[in-house]
């Protein structure tokens, strides 16, 4: 028996909007730790890792570890039917081939059940080792989204370079080239508007902008984004989900032929 009650139901709606374009089908794993997902895109270039910790749920019952295969587009369709202020409960019986999403309006005057068919998914699970990153950039998530969107109108790839001058996002295309430099800026009043750069070594890596733009669909989940870079390691683009966990995107760099 599984029963997970999430008062901030719209978090789940935002999570689905953040991942459904990158991954079609995925196994959601439920354990005493929390509700999690790890899935790669079809070309095995990008990976999404989600964790919603059990403590973040108002009620969390998971009698045994369960893996539930879901089509993310179908799940997003069902969650779109929840109101933004609704409480969402995920329910599944042991051995069942369906999962139920229950939506309760805040004043309990409307309760809806949406039952979705589960699917068998042969998912590949990757071990992601703890790594020391050469540079960690923390910046407003909206700023990062703006830069990725702007640069993708010029070119297909972005070079992210971190030096002691700051973090530089560069692209080039048929019509020309573009560079955006963000400097460390901690003097602003609000911490969510600051940019911090923790650099152990200068690093410069090239990535496909198509994926970066897809990751920025998670922007509504967090006011800040953390970009961790190491030469010859996939970049980690992390959006913290307040009091619950995180959504992390890993993207393999482009490498010299």
């Amino acid at each position: 028996m599984l029963e997970l009650r999430l008062v901030q139901g719209n978090l789940l709606k935002k999570v689905l909007e953040a991942v459904k374009d990158l991954v079609t089908d995925a196994n959601f794993d439920c354990s005493s730790t929390g509700f999690s997902l790890q899935a790669m895109d079809s070309s095995h270039v990008a990976l999404v890792a989600l964790l919603l910790r059990s403590e973040g749920f108002e009620h969390y019952r998971c009698d045994r570890n369960v893996s539930m295969g879901m089509n993310l587009n179908n799940m997003a369709k069902m969650l779109k039917c929840a109101g933004n202020d609704d409480i969402v409960t995920i329910k599944a019986d042991d051995g069942s081939d369906t999962v139920t999403f229950m939506f309760e309006s805040p004043n309990q005057d409307k309760i809806a059940d949406f039952e979705m068919k589960l699917m068998d998914i042969d998912s590949e699970h990757l071990g992601i080792p703890e790594a020391e990153y050469h540079a960690i950039v923390r910046m407003p998530s909206s700023e990062f989204a703006r830069i990725c969107k702007d640069l993708s109108s010029i070119g297909d790839t972005v070079v992210i370079s971190v030096t002691k001058e700051g973090v530089k996002f560069s692209t080039r295309g048929d019509i020309g080239n573009a560079n955006v430099v963000c400097r460390q800026n901690t003097t602003v009043d609000k911490p969510e508007e600051s940019t911090t750069i923790e650099m152990h070594e200068p690093v410069s890596l090239t990535f496909a902008l198509r994926y970066m733009n897809s990751f920025t669909k998670a922007t509504p989940l967090s006011s800040t984004v953390t970009i961790s870079l190491s030469s010859e390691l996939p970049v980690v683009v992390e959006y913290k989900i307040a009091e619950m966990g995180y959504i992390r995107f890993y993207l393999a760099p482009k490498i010299e032929d």
Binding site: S43, H44, L47, H125, G127, E232, P234, A252
Partner: peptide, 14 residues
């Protein structure tokens, strides 16, 4: 020319 790397080059299957 740059080639797209794959995650399998960096992470191992578990």
């Amino acid at each position: 020319l740059m080639q797209q790397g794959a995650l399998g080059n960096f992470f191992v299957h578990t």
